[in-house]
Amino acid sequence: MSFKQFFIEKLSLFFMLTTLITIAIFVIGSAFDAEARFGYEAMLAPLRYAACCVLPTFATYSKRELKKKELIARMALELVLIEAVMLFFAFTSPVIDTSRISVVLVIAGSVLIIYTMARLFSWLRESAEARVLNEDLQRFRQLHGQK
């Protein structure tokens, strides 16, 4: 994969994560600290977190076409890096109470869910594309005398 394509893919992951992190902040915030009020700078938090999640994934870039198993291993590595970044943020943040194990578990769980959902959306989109390709392939084979 060329670096340009890799970059475009990471950009798409960034926007997907921004949306999902916004939802996660709403859900976690409502559950643990529903009364909290923030200024406009809070609007940048999902963007900042998404960027910090995407940046470590650049370590997984490979010029070579990866096999399915290798790709799954890279994705697992990506997830570990993102978890590490988000937990680092949580433990260094003055507003997040990391002394409560439930808060840490919810943050780690949210990252896992967000990452899995982002990958699931991509997979669903690609599966739909594969269905269309198979229909085209079927027509192509019929046209060229094979069923």
Partner: peptide, 14 residues
Amino acid sequence: MKIRSIQSALNGRF
């Protein structure tokens, strides 16, 4: 003509 089917192979590949 030797392709039976096409599947998603993750990361935008097939």
